[in-house]
Amino acid sequence: MRIEFEAYATIRDAVGQGTVRMEFPEDATLGEALRAFADDHDGVAPLVFDGDGEIRPNVNVLHNDENVRAGAGTKTGLSDGDTVTLAPGIAGGSV
């Protein structure tokens, strides 16, 4: 099955482009797909995963526009044509 990844901010910078399509087995989970995506793109893993291999709390991961933290998380099942969005939180500015 084909999954489309949309990457933003520092993750997009590490990948070198905003959209990447990858092929996975039919029974792949979101966690497996995220790990494969990070393994295929240098510098992405430390931006997405913490030292325990969990998704960093400051990274928003959406599966078809739904926050995965509100559902099955990395155990979320995927289907052909799904979109996974990776968007790190952004802070800063001045008052």
Rank of each mutant, 00 (worst) to 15 (best):
Y8F: 15
E6W: 04
V20W: 02
I3K: 01
A36C: 04
N64A: 01
A70Y: 14
G93S: 11
N67Q: 12
R2W: 04
A70D: 14
G16E: 14
D80F: 02
G18V: 00
F5S: 01
V48P: 06
M1T: 09
R35A: 14
A70N: 12
A14D: 10
F24Q: 03
A87I: 14
G43M: 11
R56A: 01
F37E: 06
G71L: 10
V20H: 03
A72T: 09
G18N: 04
E23H: 02
A70H: 11
H63D: 04
L30T: 02
V68A: 00
D42H: 11
F24H: 13
P46H: 07
A33K: 05
R35P: 06
G73L: 02
H41M: 13
I55P: 10
N60F: 09
G93E: 09
V44W: 00
M22G: 00
A38W: 03
E54V: 02
E32M: 12
G93D: 08
I11A: 00
G77Y: 06
D52C: 04
N67D: 15
A36L: 13
A91M: 14
R35C: 03
V95M: 15
P57W: 06
V59C: 05
T74Y: 01
V15N: 11
T85R: 13
V61C: 06
V48Y: 06
G77K: 13
D82M: 08
I3N: 05
D40L: 09
P88Q: 06
L62Y: 00
D50L: 05
A87F: 14
G51Y: 02
E6C: 04
V95P: 15
F24A: 03
A33C: 05
M22S: 12
D39I: 11
G81M: 11
G81A: 08
A28F: 08
G43K: 11
N64D: 15
M1E: 09
T29M: 07
I55L: 14
D82W: 04
V48H: 09
T74Q: 12
G18P: 01
G73W: 05
E54S: 07
G53Q: 11
V84D: 03
L34C: 08
P88R: 09
A28N: 10
T76Q: 04
